[in-house]
Design a protein around this nucleic acid. Structure first.
Lengths: 272, 272
DNA sequence: GCGGAGCTGGCACCGAATGCCACAGCCGGC
DNA sequence: GCCGGCTGTGGCATTCGGTGCCAGCTCCGC
């Protein structure tokens, strides 16, 4: 009642949704729309980079793109959104990844694959990403906007994790929502960390590998961690490994698959 | 150069800083200032609750508080800030907690105590907190503003953790920044989770106890977790406990303080 | 008493964001 | 081929958040 998010916006205002009945006309219209978004976004980035974010008006952006000011706001909810034109799409793609995940996969791994979509989105155009990073570092408004975007992924992952915990056998105080949220935030935070480091370094090097390494650490902490282990792996883990100094202790279930046990030990050893 | 955050604002615009040369005049002025902030904030909350956030103009808030519109913006950087008048102060208080922490304390514990300041800030006026929660749930702008506030705590804690890792003995690949950020986000996320649950329930029950329980879980994951254990505890932990099903394994250093070992075991057992 | 510092009120101004209406292109059906 | 809907566009007008500027007030220390 009291809040109506941009009703003037067409229904499919965000994201070029490919999963619907698309007549030839609609499809072409969507393509046109996407192209316009790209052009506006490019013009905005160009202006922001040269004369700063606040000093650039929407009028100038629209003029640079050859359209009217009013048209700009038909494609972007706000001036900030012109910098992050892909987050909406990426969010639905990440959700698609979650939905399409195989049943047996560890939910934490699924989520990691989900946020990899975000990383790929950034990695797809490194130059733009670096320029955008510089902007978000300096302009608080943009920084907050990006943080808000990230929070959306976190919420998505939290819901997914909570919905994919092992359905039985761990009704102990019901800490699952907490664990789900913490785990989701850990994954997202790890992603952000790797991403920012990569962007600071000028988008050099293999991000995906670095991301995988970070995930490995998160998985070591949460997947085989002591407190959260049972709930987060979705089942009682077949083996737990503890390594301190020169002592390594392994406890395994008698019915555990052998390779799983080996993998667990291997992970503990790999970190020297 | 390109961004100047409200230069018209007096230097000590935010937070009633008690740690400076305060002449009697200055102190009284600060008290006046604080009172004005409270009144404006109260008027704003009242109006927001009755007629909604967007529907309420700054003019109305100012009029309700009996001052001019211009005065409002001398006390708050923006309309949103009227809802979160205490975050700035709380942030400096949290930082003070970190700075005053005893040397031997586990940095993760310190950070937990730090964010407890935030929880106390909310718990100090439950009714207002609940009303504010309802607002932030419905108005995206406010939601993002709160997320941004939370991010500030996270950054503070990340810096602290990174600066208080054990200085030697773990230069293995330099994952410390990642671990610090993930740990900080875990603590903050746990806090937020408990806080929101408490607010949803109408601010009933002992929040601090619930928060401690959540911290316990985080500590179990990170403090005695396998991957992050060494770095995050700030030293090689004296004891590691692993418990799965009916099997409990403890590995302890020979020179570990006995009570510390007992506490570690106790924690592992307490969770049934 | 006087000058300065700090807070206030009022004004003007900029710019983001939204609503409304008219117009042009494109589609389909007749 | 013509016409009625649909969609995107441009150009208004309007609201409102936020800032700069100036004048007036009060309280303080000299």
């Amino acid at each position: 009642m009291q809040y109506r998010p941009h009703m003037s916006q067409p229904v499919r205002a965000q994201s070029s949704d490919a999963t619907e009945t698309s007549t030839p006309g609609t499809r072409r219209a969507a393509a046109q729309r996407l192209k316009m978004r790209r052009e506006l976004s490019a013009a905005a980035m160009e202006l922001f980079a040269t004369k700063g974010y606040e000093a650039t008006t929407v009028d100038e952006i629209a003029a640079a793109a050859g359209v009217a000011r009013r048209t700009f706001f038909r494609h972007f909810r706000s001036k900030e959104e012109a910098i992050f034109p892909d987050h909406d799409d990426t969010l639905v793609r990440a959700e698609a990844v979650l939905d399409a995940a195989p049943q047996h996969e560890n939910p934490l791994d699924t989520v990691c694959r989900g946020i990899k979509e975000v990383m790929r989105m950034y990695a797809a155009s490194p130059a733009v990403s670096v320029a955008r990073y510089r902007l978000t570092r300096e302009v608080p408004t943009l920084r907050e906007a990006e943080i808000a975007s990230v929070a959306r992924y976190e919420r998505l992952f939290t819901r997914y994790l909570l919905g994919h915990f092992d359905e039985g056998a761990h009704r102990e105080g019901d800490d699952d929502p907490l664990l789900a949220e913490v785990a989701a935030s850990a994954v997202v935070t790890a992603h952000n960390h790797v991403l920012r480091r990569w962007l600071r370094a000028g988008a050099q090097g293999d991000v995906e590998a670095q991301l995988d390494h970070a995930f490995e650490i998160v998985r070591e902490t949460f997947g085989t961690g002591i407190g959260a282990g049972r709930a987060l792996t979705g089942e009682t883990p077949p083996a737990a490994v503890s390594r301190e100094g020169e002592v390594l202790v392994t406890v395994a279930r008698t019915d555990a698959p052998l390779d799983e046990v080996m993998r667990t030990i291997e992970r503990a050893l790999k970190k020297r």
